[in-house]
Write a protein that binds this DNA or RNA. Structure first.
Ligand code: MN
Ligand code: MN
Ligand code: ZN
Ligand code: ZN
Lengths: 139, 139
DNA sequence: CTTCAACTTTAGAATCATTATAAAATATTC
DNA sequence: GAATATTTTATAATGATTCTAAAGTTGAAG
């Protein structure tokens, strides 16, 4: 069972053509069991430095957005200039370390939300994010 | 009891010189009992269009950052290109309407968080934000 | 009140993440 | 193996934010 074949299937099932570039990005994002958080720039750097490949930045952006739309990635809400993405698409929460500018997962059932309020009229709830901002002690 | 005097005191107490520009911005942000959410651009537009004043954009940025540092404003974590600020500095949560790109307050005690996890070693918790993403029905 | 150093404002330039463009390359269909 | 639709790419454009350095203002001291 080649991993590549699985990625090809995954993309075809989503109506996305399995191009060389997209498969390479799948490999970086989805090969390991471990999930992780990244910015588009992080991802481009991994591809370029670790894999010695060259994928245009525009393609990396396009692919990340396509994968997000298909639900293979989640975008995380944090303050700042850059967007952070998450290969962990299960419902879970985050610490955000504002010194390291790093996200750390918090298991979904480690936080219990009581009394989730109803969405305003005409709107429906799409997701709930809990962000616990942390910083180095003695600051 | 002139409102202006209160703003002058407020700024002086924070070690910020009460300039004409800063007082005008205080007036826009803190005159009403109602709190609200805004982007720097929103704020600049209010000053320019409603008050027919001209404050350089750089000054608006500087002032918003200074007020945030002093705790008179909070920055809200939402995904996107722009930063959102909040004149409500009490602990509370938000709906984020991704169609209208609008924040709506949720009272702090309308959401009960059980089992808040401990901060990672060497870090301490600075704040907890709950964002409930909503969008128009039937999308 | 004047003076002066420290601070602030400002217009404009610079930066940086992201998106748009449109021509060249590639993938799928027949 | 064409013809067609999609994708990639380099590059330009955009837009939010920050930087710069010159001109203006403020507050403290005399
Ligand atoms: Mn990163
Ligand atoms: Mn707004
Ligand atoms: Zn995560
Ligand atoms: Zn609010």
């Amino acid at each position: 069972m080649k991993e590549l074949e699985n990625f090809v299937k995954k993309l075809r099932n989503s109506g996305i053509r399995p191009t060389k570039q997209r498969l390479k990005i799948c490999e970086v994002l989805f090969s390991s069991d471990k999930t992780f958080h990244f910015t588009v720039n992080d991802l481009a750097k991994i591809i370029e430095e670790e894999l010695r490949e060259k994928i245009s930045l525009a393609t990396v952006y396009n692919t990340v957005h396509a994968f997000k739309k298909k639900g293979y990635l989640k975008e995380i809400s944090i303050p700042g200039d850059k967007s952070y993405f998450d290969t962990n698409t299960n419902h879970h929460h985050h610490f955000f370390d504002s010194n390291a500018k790093e996200l750390i997962d918090i298991d979904f059932n480690q936080i219990e939300l009581k009394n989730t309020p109803k969405a305003p009229r005409g709107k429906s709830i799409k997701g709930i994010d809990v962000i616990i901002n942390v910083e180095n002690d003695s600051q």
